[in-house]
Nucleic acid binder design. Sequence first.
DNA 1: CGAAAAATGAGGTACGTTGGTCAAAACGCG
DNA 2: CGCGTTTTGACCAACGTACCTCATTTTTCG
Lengths: 340, 340
Amino acid sequence: MTRSTIHDVARVARVSLSTVDRVLNDRNRVRPATRARVEEAVRALGYVRNAAAANLSRQRRFRFLFVLPAGANSFMRNLEREVVAYARSLAAEGVEAEVRLVPPFDGEALFRELDALTPGAFDGTAFVAVDSPAVRRAVARLQAADLGVVTLVSDLPADLRAHFIGIDNIRAGRTAARLLGGFCGDRAGRIAVVAGAMRVNDHAERYAGFRQVLAQDFPHLEALPPVEALDDAGRAETRLAALLDATEDVVGIYSLGAGNRGVVAALGRRDPAPPVVVHELTEHSRRWLLEGRIDAVIRQDPAREARAALRTLLALSQGKPFDRDENRVGIEIFLRDNLP
Amino acid sequence: MTRSTIHDVARVARVSLSTVDRVLNDRNRVRPATRARVEEAVRALGYVRNAAAANLSRQRRFRFLFVLPAGANSFMRNLEREVVAYARSLAAEGVEAEVRLVPPFDGEALFRELDALTPGAFDGTAFVAVDSPAVRRAVARLQAADLGVVTLVSDLPADLRAHFIGIDNIRAGRTAARLLGGFCGDRAGRIAVVAGAMRVNDHAERYAGFRQVLAQDFPHLEALPPVEALDDAGRAETRLAALLDATEDVVGIYSLGAGNRGVVAALGRRDPAPPVVVHELTEHSRRWLLEGRIDAVIRQDPAREARAALRTLLALSQGKPFDRDENRVGIEIFLRDNLP
DNA sequence: CGAAAAATGAGGTACGTTGGTCAAAACGCG
DNA sequence: CGCGTTTTGACCAACGTACCTCATTTTTCG
């Protein structure tokens, strides 16, 4: 039961190979009647184009540029690794990805990379968005030049119509609240929140979602204003410790950005330990989970994000049909028992 | 910067195409000195074989048989759909998968399918294991005949060395206990457990893991012996209702198999509603989650499992190098806020 | 009806690899 | 050195599709 080819289609439709080719690739004029015959044959045979052969023949290559934040952020380093790995596995389909690192949270640096992008060199780009007018202009220019543009992890305003690959951070915050609310049971009190910087969109959104659920479903719990740690563990520790000392009724902790090391340090051996929910799975958070120092980790899977971004860019570059669902990135919850 | 080909390798190594081919595909004798020259050229050029062209040429096809339980179990139906879908997307690499359905929990039926398998017709098989001596014999025979054998979702004893694609069901049960234990807070009492059939390994393992965590970390909770529903919602409802009527102190429900519809029906509008954790995400469980009738869903992603199974079979059939991590299936937790 | 225009067919080359055949060259050994 | 044996090179036909040219048929319309 070998797969049918354009030769089979031609035979069944009683036309020549050339005509099948013209229909399939929408070349020059073909009479509607003939076109219908070919399409009918395609349907009858269940013909699907052999993508490998097609790419081989047309010798098409897809070059994509990924611009990611440099630095020690382990989520980003994982993401980088996954991009490289998945690009390699798509090599047979003509995909090549180049990764460039820029200083984190630096709109100017990101803009320079995007601005230097010429349509000749790349077919599309994916980057962790920092929102700034210059970046928006660069994106508009790239889209006008018909390059695929994908924002990764952190988004830009939707009207730019770049595709976004990442989680819904409002729902991530809601999920954290649901977990923490459940774990707190009937205990009433307040929740300490540690953030990176509220001026980053994803952190602000997580906090908003977190408060939504507390207000609606756990009215006996209240979120304190976030401690801003700026991804700095020392700062997180000092400020959180101060907050805990100053506040009697803290019944839970939500850490929605980086700097978890400081959070755990600040908790030290306070007793009783309140339930703790943090973001991102690292070797540290994994160990703390196993040791029972934290109770749950929420994360987005960098492997899925890398794959989704590459598949999206590929879909944008060639035809288009591309599966929104397949490219959705989930909000994952880890307890100590379901660690990967 | 177009990719290098065997032609380039031949030129750089100053040998003919044939010799490059002989080295690359380990054909007949090549003098060590020549082989070294070719390998050096490969390294220098960073040559990697164009897999698309190779498969195109060698016209190798891989036929795999999937044996899945028939019936309304929606996890299995999703799995079936994903297998078909992913097989289609691997069609360019020569993969074809056939799915056959057998009565669920029926070792005899499974055995008959496996036993009828001849090495000529298929290159490998994946199936949801029902453990029985006959099935074990059939698996041994298939492996002796050098067919790839993969157990899916439910495993056989490991010494048979079939690859297993699915979640660690002990840990899935532990995860359920951790969640339910957390949600029960300080309330003491017993947990009602609803299973499909304890003679399928996965259900027995989930129950075991569930009890481990309760015993260790939630000593005020006790798991009742499982109600066996055999994937039948009506039966689940009747039995669970009877159990709830007969037992005063049920503070939580764990449904570890199919038949969730019955579980929810049995709970009806009992008040207060105990926390409920179930397995598998379906349109029903999704709705119940949103309505607050159940509190958490644990699932294994059928799409991932389908992909992992096919990739594993493919790896077994051809060379081998295959990524254990990439093919791991996670234990996912869904609350109403992080539904996909 | 006949000419121009449109549609279709026939056939070729190419993509990178596989897997042959056969002849030529290099090698090993007595 | 000459023999047989190994190793190597040169060539070719696939695989399924793309894309090209040129000839031939069919359609359209004045």
